[in-house]
Amino acid sequence: MRHDVILRVIAKLLIPFILLFALYVQFHGDFGPGGGFQAGVILAAAVIFYGLIYGLADARKLVPEAVVESMMAIGVLIYGGVGVAGLLLGGNYLDYFVLDPNPVHGQHRGIFWVEVGVAVTVSGVMLKIFYMFADRGRVDE
């Protein structure tokens, strides 16, 4: 597939929009359908698409393995960190009201960071799984 001009051009055209759509889904999740899970999956799908068309090595160059692996952990840590932040500011674990003087804004802030954490973990895990499977095939041959 690496030498098919049509696929390469279309992929180049589509991928920016897929990434943009992922960001839209992530940050517009409060108002429309969407949120961390979907955004994470779409983000991962964009990179997987790139990897399928241009080959695994190029995808690795774009998003290195170390980044993906740390994404998996960082997402969970962000989520847990939001909880701990609530704890430090005098609330219960995962209590968002205390994150801002205005409780409603605190909720917004908490939801925002939690969604970021979810998106980072989900896209990290999906990408890592894809890398593992794709890499396996190449090693076996």
Binding site: G35, F37, V41, V122, V125, M126, I129, M132, F133, R136
Partner: peptide, 19 residues
């Protein structure tokens, strides 16, 4: 929503076992 994402994660784990 959460079940779907967990579902695909477990599917991946199952496929890894199959491989």
């Amino acid at each position: 929503l959460t079940a779907i994402v967990v579902g695909v994660a477990t599917l991946a784990l199952g496929l890894a076992l199959v491989v």
